[in-house]
Design a protein around this nucleic acid. Sequence first.
DNA 1: TTGACGTCCGAAACCGTTTTTGTAACTCTG
DNA 2: CAGAGTTACAAAAACGGTTTCGGACGTCAA
Lengths: 360, 360
Amino acid sequence: MGTLEEERRSVTIDDVARHVGVAKGTVSRVLNNYKDISPATRERILHAVKELGYQPSSTARSLKRGRQDTIGLVMPVGRGRGADPFLSEFIDGIARALDGLNLDLLITTAPSTADLVAVHERLIARRKVDGFILTRTEVDDARIRFLTERGFPFVAHGRTGQPEAFSWLDVDNEAVFVEGVRHLHGLGHRRIAMLAGPQDLNFARQRVEGYRGGLAQSGIPVEVEVELEIVTDLTEEGGAEGARRLLALPLPPTAVLCTTDAQAIGAMRLIRDAGLVVGQDITVIGYDGLPVGAYLDPPLTTFSQAAREAGGRIAAMLVDQIGNPLARPVQDLTDALLIRRGSDGPPARTPQEIAGLLGK
Amino acid sequence: MGTLEEERRSVTIDDVARHVGVAKGTVSRVLNNYKDISPATRERILHAVKELGYQPSSTARSLKRGRQDTIGLVMPVGRGRGADPFLSEFIDGIARALDGLNLDLLITTAPSTADLVAVHERLIARRKVDGFILTRTEVDDARIRFLTERGFPFVAHGRTGQPEAFSWLDVDNEAVFVEGVRHLHGLGHRRIAMLAGPQDLNFARQRVEGYRGGLAQSGIPVEVEVELEIVTDLTEEGGAEGARRLLALPLPPTAVLCTTDAQAIGAMRLIRDAGLVVGQDITVIGYDGLPVGAYLDPPLTTFSQAAREAGGRIAAMLVDQIGNPLARPVQDLTDALLIRRGSDGPPARTPQEIAGLLGK
DNA sequence: TTGACGTCCGAAACCGTTTTTGTAACTCTG
DNA sequence: CAGAGTTACAAAAACGGTTTCGGACGTCAA
C-alpha cells in the first residue's frame, strides 16, 4: 500500500512529450494554440494531456513569460480597527471577476501605513504580481506616486487630491453628499451636522466637501458648518463620540450626515441613550449600505454603493491595463443610492426644543 | 528624458555577480547563508546587493525549490449571501501572521460549492500554493477528503463529522452552547429556543448539539427541543424568519439562542416589532462577537471567538506542517467567551403571558 | 617535501516552461 | 525536374534562480 518512495511527482510537459513521442516544444505549442501543428498530432497531444492530467506549472510559465497572472492587493491596516465590511465585499467582487480570467488575487497586509509603499515595492521586485488594486486612496497618496513613477500597472478605488493621470473608479462622493444635504433641507432641516472622517483619506474629504457644497446650495450660512462639522474615527466609537459633542452644543443639530454606517450606528446609539428619538428628534444618515443597518431601530437610512460590482469592474480595468500598458488611463465615476429606511424624517423639534430636552 | 528603449529590466543575480566579479552561485550562497564564504566576499556581495537594489525573483526561486511560499484560501461563496464578517477578520489575522514569515496569501473564490474541490485541485496542479487553509468545514467535507488523500498540507478551521487525522483549530462549539443553555437556565428560563443553521455545516450542527446537551443537563424535557429548534439561514432574514415562527407557537420561548449574530440581529428586530422587549420579555443571545452588536438596542449578548487570533494561529500551524509534512496532526480546541451586554436577563413573563401579549 | 585535508569559490546542471532557430520532407512553379 | 516556398516538427536556448561537483590554493602534520 504505497512504499515510502511514493514520490508524488507531478506530471510535467516532458512526460506528455515522451508519452506521445514528440518534442516538448510541440506540446507547448499545441497548448498555446500555435497554428503550425498538424491536426493529427494536436489531437494525439491533447488526448495525452487529458489522460495524464497534465497542468502546466504556473511557476515555470511565469519565469519564462515574465507574467505571474496574479494581481495584488495590500490591505490597509490599523485604520478603523477591525474588519472593513466594504473591503470584504469588494474583495469578493474582485475574486469573482478574476476567476473567469484565470488570474489569482494575492492579499497582503502592511504592518503599518508607513510601510505601505515598501510592501508594494517588495511584491514588484520579487515579481509576485502583475498589477495592483489600491483601496482607500489618500489625498496625497504615496503608493500612487510610487507606482506611476515606476510605471507599474494599477487601478485605484478612489481618486487623490490632484487629478493625476491614472486609472481609477470612484463614487462621486461630493455629489452624493450634496444630495444628502439637499434631501435633508427638503425635509425641513436647517441645522445639519456632519460627522467627518480623517481628512487625509480622500473620500472622507470629498464627502465633507459635498456637505459644504450642499449647505451652500441650500442657502445655509457657513457659520453653521464650522460648528457642526466634526472629525472623528470611522468607527462606532467615533460616531458615538461625535454625536456626544454635537449634543453638547448650545444648539444641537436636527440632522447628522455620517461618513460611514459605522459612525452612524454609534451616533444613533448615543442619541437614543440621550433620550431622543432617531428619525424624529434627530435624523441620522449613513453611508455604505451595510445590511445590518436594515435591522437597527429605526432602520438606518444610508447611501449604498455597489461594493461587489466595484470590485469586479476594477479587476477588469486592471486586466485591460496589464494587457495594454500604453493605453490611456480609464476613469469612472459611479453613483451611490440613497436607501431610505427609517432614520430620516422631518425635524419633529427645533434645536431649541432639543436643547431643552437635554436639560440645557 | 528617457528613450522609448527605457527597458525596465529588473536586476538579476547575474547583474550582481558581474558587478562584484564572482560567480552567481556565490551570490546565491551568500544570500542563503551558506557558511563556506569568506567574510570579505560576503561583505562585498552584500554591499553590491544593497547598491543595486537586488531582490531575488520568487518565481525563479520557486521553480528550483519547488516551493511557492504562498498559501491558499478558497472563499466559500453563496453561503449566507454577502460578506462574512468573521471571515474578513480571520483573513486579516492570517495575513498578519504570514507577513513576518515572508509568505503570501492567495485568495480565490469558487464559483459554487460544487466546484470547491476542483479549485483546490487546480491550485495544486498549477503549483501556486504550498498549503491550504480551510474554513467553514462541513460535516462531510469533500475538500478534506481530497487533500488528505492527496497528502497535501492544510489546516482547517473547524472539524468534520468524523474525527479524522488532520490538523484543525476549532471552537468547542458544543461546550459553548451547553454553557449558553445553562446560563439561560440559571437565569430562570425554561422554554429555551434555538435558531439553528444549515446542518451540513459542522459548526452549525455542533452548536445544536450543545443546545440539546444543555437542555438535557438542565433537566428540560426533550419535547421542548423538537418544538423550539428551528433551522434557518445564517442571515438577518433567517433570524427574523425563525423568530417569526417561534412567536407563532402556542407557547413561545422566553429565550432564543442563535447560531450567529446575524441571526440574532434579525430575531431581535422581529421580536421588538412584535411589541416585546428584548432582554426582558424574550432573551436573545448571539454568537460571533460582532462589534456592531454593542450598538444595538439593547446591546446584543453574544459569544465571541477571537477570529483574528484564530487566523494567526492557523497560519502558524500550516507553516509548521509545510515545513515538516510528516509530523502528526495538531488539533486545538479554543473557547468562546460570553460577552454579556443587554439582550439577556431573567424572564419577565411566562410563555403564557407572552402568548397573551401577542393576542393569542 | 609530500600528501591529506579545509577553505573558498567557479562551472555547470537543473527546475519546467516558452520561444527561437533550424531542417527534413513536401508541394509548387516554370 | 531543379530551385523556391511551405509545412510540421525537433533541438536548443532562454528565463533567474539553487545546488552539486570539483578544483585551486593554503595549511599542517609526517
